[in-house]
Design a protein around this nucleic acid. Structure first.
Lengths: 341, 341
DNA sequence: ATAATTTCCGAAATCGTTTTCGGTTGTCTT
DNA sequence: AAGACAACCGAAAACGATTTCGGAAATTAT
């Protein structure tokens, strides 16, 4: 396959490359007649502009970078899907990279993307990221960055989040509405804002309902795994014989608890109610099915790209860059691991 | 952020850009002294070569394309993970696109990748693809293509597959070994080679064990969904009161059957055994847990990239291109939806 | 018929890197 | 001291597309 270039078209038509380029882009200073000629030849030769040359010239790649903490994960899969979908619709492609919840990886992967001259980056902070210099440097360098899901208040950029506080509040309130009074919380890793907010929402719901907050009812799951729930479950019932509900920061851990309870002969929700978080696919097929909070990954992915796209356009038009912070709505999904209201 | 270019380094050092370029790449015709100078300045200025210029000059992007039928899918998530992991290790980045199991989308997405001048493409055929001209054209044009998972015999390129036939044979044989005699099969969409092979493996196992093949025991699930299994389950027991096992082409559908059976009061595995396919995460947490066949997506992803990488190197070195077909091993994972052996 | 506009096209610079092919120095032989 | 040979470096031509600026031709106005 010999490449079709502007030069070749120009040569066979006896005009200059400038004319060909302008004809294809409908410049007003090219006659209709030549435009017709050029366009038809280009079409029949199946001319495709060389993207490297275009990028070099226009200083944009039409590629964005997406950094995901963990790819194999239902919620994040949906994020990827949403981002790619929305990006395609606007003529952008997406390079995906995984940070493995590691600060070092996060930095390295950002560098890889920058070296490839991506036009912008979509980023969810790793659990271990507590220092935001690498991101602020990016932004100072003029690279548009949009944070999604796991964000930090100390980075000044556009963000897409769910209102974790409100979502956790609602989940806890729901448990209370079904008659639960002694509610344990399995919280996630300490650093991410999401798990902090979920914890605070839980606490607030107790407060509003005049239930005394008891620190010993809060269990920390340092990572997101089935096994963690499986192992924490017996601790909870050993520590507190009268617990009647558990709010877990994520479905996967809640599922671990569910399975362990089943093995231990504890009835859910009769003895203990369980509510998870994220509405993973698996929550629909556990037995009993798992009540949870819907966390719409696809929507978040789409919105994250949209915000980035807006900034890209602002930059192109020389407008001032407006950062936006968007909250995606969540809702409690009652299933069978909680009592009817 | 003003860009650091070769020209700028050259200017401040009073040498030519050629010298700078060669110094950074350790050309032998540059003195150690200048190399030191150049390298240290480049480092302190944090020089990053412009990838567009490099690509334009070297005719390679160091980016590959990955087309996935469905991103939100446990198996394919693992594929993505494996590809990205392996690619990063070799200095390649990955643009991921989704074909939505649509032939048109598949063609369009391939075009997008080609327009971005990716160095190669990893592709799993959509269920609806029955015409391979678009892929053969690619290959004829010199774009390295590696097919993974859903492949076609009529495309001449490297491929990574699991031995679906053997895997299905083993799964069926396993059911027989546990004493099952009347085994239904839920097969997938008719076109993909994978589901054909699984069907054939099932059939062969019956034959080898002198069990008469009964066409009415084969049910077609036109798509991969929980609901399909949920709906097919009652049909099976209505059509055949004496069925004692089901081999489903995928875990998700098997799970649908499982849940429906539970609702219908049919005991698994006492009355009917079920074995799925793919070892989705969810198969570990159904109740009973689902016996299945492990289908290592991560390994496949890695291998697929490796094959592409090999071809890329062959091209670069002007060697003849050797296509390779790799089969990834699978194994039956016995859990509690089948009887002990 | 001459002047004033349009209309249309092309030369050339640019984006940043790579690499060939010479050309300068300086060193080493005799 | 002249020639031979290394050792170093740079000019310049790619890679393709874009866009400014100016110039020639064709049209209109006077």
């Amino acid at each position: 396959m010999l490449k079709v270039t502007l030069k070749k078209i120009a040569a066979t038509l006896g005009v200059s490359t400038a004319t060909v380029s302008k004809a294809l882009k409908d410049y007003p200073d090219i006659s209709e007649k030549t435009k017709k000629k050029v366009k038809s030849l280009a079409a029949s030769l199946n001319y495709k502009p060389n993207s490297f040359a275009q990028s070099l010239r226009n200083q944009e790649s039409k590629i964005i970078g997406l950094i995901i903490p963990t790819i194999v994960h239902h919620f994040f899969s949906n994020i990827i899907y949403g981002v790619i979908d929305s990006a395609s619709e606007h003529g952008y492609l997406v390079i995906t990279l995984q940070s493995n919840e590691s600060y070092e990886d996060e930095k390295n992967k950002i560098n890889l993307l920058i070296e490839k001259n991506v036009d912008g980056i979509l980023l969810s902070l790793s659990d271990k990221t507590v220092n935001y210099k690498h991101i602020n440097r990016l932004i100072d360098d003029g690279v548009p960055v949009v944070l999604y899901d796991k964000i930090s208040r100390s980075v000044n950029c556009s963000k897409v989040i769910i209102n974790d506080f409100a979502a956790a509040f609602n989940a806890t309130q729901y448990l209370i509405d079904t008659g639960c009074k002694k509610i344990a919380h399995i919280r996630g890793p300490l650093k991410p804002q999401t798990t902090i907010d979920r914890f605070m929402g839980y606490k607030k719901a107790l407060e509003v309902n005049n239930i005394l907050f008891d620190d010993s009812l809060v269990y920390v799951s340092d990572s997101l795994s089935f096994e963690n729930g499986y192992n924490i479950a017996p601790k909870i019932i050993n520590d507190h014989t009268d617990v009647d509900a558990i709010f877990s920061f994520t479905d996967l851990v809640a599922t671990g608890v569910l399975i362990r309870f089943k093995e231990l002969g504890i009835l859910v929700p009769e003895q203990i109610s369980i509510i998870g978080f994220s509405n993973w696919f698996l929550s629909k097929i556990t037995s009993p099915t798992l009540s949870t909070v819907d966390q719409p990954g696809y929507e978040m992915g789409r919105k994250a790209f949209t915000l980035l796209y807006n900034e890209l356009n602002q930059i192109r038009n020389g407008e001032p860059i407006k950062h936006e912070i968007v909250e995606i709505a969540t809702k409690v999904i009652p299933r069978n691991s909680t009592k009817p209201i």
